[in-house]
Amino acid sequence: MPPPQGFRYEEHADGTVVITHRHRPAGTLRGGRAGRFLAEIAAGDPQLVMARWTGNYRHGNERTARGHPRNRR
């Protein structure tokens, strides 16, 4: 599975962090959550961290879910 791509974040003067994915808003963090996010960005892979914090990442079960009777067409 390729690593996630297309994420960016902007840190604002009031401490708010806005995360975008392919130029569309994906999440806004404020206060303590923004601080934890910035600390995690400094320690790890930024793309993977942003994907995890926004929930926009693959879980690995997409291929098996496609074959589920509910999803067949």
Rank of each mutant, 00 (worst) to 15 (best):
E11I: 06
Q5C: 07
R33D: 09
P69M: 11
E62F: 03
T28Y: 04
P69W: 07
T64P: 01
N56Q: 12
Y9D: 04
R58A: 15
I41W: 03
N71P: 10
Q47M: 04
A13F: 03
Y9V: 03
T64N: 12
Q5G: 10
R52A: 15
G55E: 10
P69A: 14
R66V: 10
T28R: 11
P46Q: 15
R8I: 07
Y9H: 01
V18F: 00
G6F: 00
F37W: 00
R73Q: 12
Q5D: 14
H68V: 05
A51D: 15
Y9P: 00
A65L: 12
E10I: 08
A42N: 06
G31T: 06
L48R: 06
T54R: 05
N56P: 00
T16W: 01
E10Y: 12
L48E: 12
V17F: 07
G32Y: 01
A26S: 01
E40W: 02
G32T: 02
R33V: 01
H23V: 11
G60E: 09
R66L: 07
T54P: 13
R72A: 15
P69G: 12
E10D: 11
R33W: 01
R24V: 08
R30H: 05
H12Q: 13
E62N: 08
L48Q: 11
G44Q: 14
N71R: 14
F37V: 05
G60T: 04
T54C: 15
G35C: 04
G27L: 09
